Every structure is written in C-alpha cells, then in structure tokens.
Simulated assay, not measured.
Amino acid sequence: MTPRDVELELAAFLEGAGLELSTTTNPPTLYPGPFPTSAPPRFVCIRHTGGEGGLYLGTRRGVLSADVQVVVRGPRASYTDTRELAVRCWTALHLAPVPGYVDVRCEGAGPTYMGPDGEGGPRFAFNLTARYSA
C-alpha cells in the first residue's frame, strides 16, 4: 500500500473549485503543505496532519485514511470575508468527489475561528479525512 500526496491532490481539487485560489500565481494563494513567511495576507494552506490509518482488505489492497487540516488566513479587519472563504473551502471539500478518493469528509459543522495571527489577520481552520484505496 502506497501513501498518496493528499496535500497536493486536495490543493489541485480546491484550485479547480472556482474559489479563485491558485498554487501558481505570484505569490500563490493556495499552499499544499507548509507556507512561507512571505505568504500573502490572504491564503489557504492544506496540511497533512496524521499518518495513514488503514484497513487491509486482504487482496493486497487496503483503504488508507489521511488526516488533513485546512487553514484559511485573511488580512487585518477581514473577519467576515475570511470566514466566507473558509466556509466556501469547507463546502467544496466536504463529501467532494475528488478523483482517486473513496471519500473526503470534513469534521464538524464548518470552519473554526483560530484567532488572529501575529500580523492581526483572522485565521479559520477545519479538519478532514481523505480515504483512498491503495
């Protein structure tokens, strides 16, 4: 069983979801994995946070579960706009038909406010589990 690059694959799905997020703009607004300190005030980050839990199917294949966290940050005084973007990301990913995945399920009823970052920008986060056959 081989783990997948869930950060990159979920970022590609989110990039194509019509949220005006991009991994290729300069600077990017969507980061698969860690983001640099030079990241713009408004961005989304997708991070793999847990190991691959799995269920062996006995056929030299199994179903693996990857735990992922999505963090949305916005500029100062943009609480409502940042929350709206976080909700749109949550909605795009919850139960999404991501190619190659059995299912993607977001936890909770939506993004959680994480307080301001060091620059005073609002941050929202939510967790999800992405299951795939390997």
Rank of each mutant, 00 (worst) to 15 (best):
E84N: 00
C89M: 02
P75L: 01
V87F: 15
V70I: 15
V102M: 13
D103T: 10
E84Y: 01
P75T: 06
A77Q: 13
R105D: 09
L93W: 10
L93N: 13
V102N: 12
A86T: 04
A77M: 12
V98L: 08
E107C: 12
E107F: 08
L85H: 01
S78Y: 13
V71Y: 00
W90K: 03
G74D: 08
R73H: 14
R73Q: 14
V98A: 09
A92G: 11
A96H: 03
R83V: 00
A92Y: 11
V98E: 12
P97S: 14
V70G: 10
R73L: 15
A86H: 04
R76V: 14
V70N: 05
V102F: 09
V102K: 11
E107D: 13
H94I: 02
V102I: 05
C106K: 00
R105N: 12
A96N: 12
L95H: 06
V71H: 00
A86P: 01
R83T: 01
V70E: 06
G100W: 04
R88K: 08
V72Y: 02
L93I: 14
L93R: 13
L93D: 04
R73K: 15
Q69G: 01
T91M: 12
V104D: 01
R105W: 10
E84A: 08
P99N: 04
C89K: 04
R105T: 15
E84F: 03
V87S: 15
R73Y: 14
L85M: 06
A92T: 11
G100A: 08
Y79F: 15
R88T: 03
R105C: 01
R73G: 15
V102Y: 15
L85Q: 06
R88L: 08
C89G: 05
Y101F: 11
G74A: 01
R73D: 15
Y101H: 14
P75I: 05
R83M: 07
R88S: 06
L85C: 02
R105G: 02
G74T: 01
V72R: 00
A92H: 13
L93S: 07
G74R: 02
E107I: 12
E84G: 02
V72K: 03
W90V: 07
L95S: 14
R76A: 11
L93G: 11
L95K: 14
V98R: 06
Q69I: 05
W90G: 01
T80S: 09
L85E: 00
E107T: 09
Q69C: 03
R83P: 05
R105V: 15
A92N: 11
T91R: 11
V102R: 14
P75V: 04
V70C: 11
V72L: 01
T82R: 04
P99C: 00
R88G: 05
